[in-house]
């Protein structure tokens, strides 16, 4: 139980205890999550897997403070998220969490740089600080020369890298990616995973939801969900490490 030991060292980022999420559809109740207990430490690299409808996205959204659980307790950096107001949640999302979506979710009318600046606007940064940070994030993902392109002038892989830059720009405590490669071909998907790998090595905490074994292999730890329950939680002994290997 090495995870518990790390906890004692004070590196726990997220503690989830007996969380459930129940949706009401008319008279029916859908148990998207039944009873999840989970701990995530700093610099974890977690892959969440499981069949469609097993509750991966629901769990991810709760971790990302986009959604709140119906039951149970969620502590983010020892703050009780289940008690928070809308504004508090927005503020956590802004400062602590970087989200990467399957469908990129970029503002189509804004340039990639403006997209990356968006979280900084809501974080209250001034124009010049915004520009500087966003430029740096764009360079980090290798798109320093695409800052004035709009999303529809970029390839899928480039769009996802813009989304990663947007997730990174506020230097969040954790990066959450819900099927980040789902809309990309395998080669571009690999590029994105490479990017995550580097971020992880630089000390970031990362959670990736995926269907693909190929993608999950990058993670340090793999969780399998089924019907709203954790079926399996283990260290990935076959972690596919390195950038060199990933390069075609």
């Amino acid at each position: 139980m090495e995870l518990k030991e790390e906890n004692r060292n004070g590196t726990t980022l997220i503690e989830i205890e007996h969380i459930a999420k129940i949706y009401r559809m008319g008279t029916e109740y859908v148990h998207a999550l039944r009873d999840i207990t989970l701990q995530i430490n700093k610099n974890d690299y977690l892959a969440i897997m499981g069949p469609s409808g097993s509750g991966k996205s629901t769990l991810m959204n709760i971790i990302g403070c986009l959604d709140t659980p119906t039951k149970g307790k969620y502590l983010f950096k020892e703050m009780d998220v289940s008690e928070m107001t809308d504004n508090d949640l927005a503020s956590i999302r802004n400062k602590e969490i970087g989200f990467v979506f399957q469908t990129f979710n970029l503002l189509s009318r804004s340039t990639s740089l403006k997209n990356v600046e968006l979280p900084l606007i809501y974080g209250g940064f001034g124009a010049s600080a915004r520009h500087e940070k966003a430029m740096k994030a764009m360079e980090n993902v290798g798109l320093g020369d695409r800052v004035n392109h709009k999303p529809n002038e970029l390839s899928g892989g480039q769009r996802q890298r813009v989304a990663v830059a947007r997730a990174l720009v506020t230097e969040p405590s954790i990066i959450l990616a819900d099927e980040p490669t789902g809309n990309l071909d395998s080669k571009t998907g690999l590029e994105i995973m490479n990017l995550f790998n580097e971020l992880w090595k630089a000390g970031n905490t990362i959670i990736v939801v995926t269907h693909e074994e190929e993608v999950a292999r990058f993670a340090k730890r793999i969780i399998k969900l089924r019907d709203g329950l954790i079926e399996h939680d283990s260290v990935n002994h076959h972690q596919r490490a390195l950038t060199e290997e990933a390069q075609p």
Partner: peptide, 16 residues
């Protein structure tokens, strides 16, 4: 709607 969702996801508060 989607744009609003994106803005909220990256931390826009209601009053924004």
């Amino acid at each position: 709607t989607r744009e609003i969702g994106i803005r909220k996801a990256v931390g826009a508060k209601r009053r924004w």
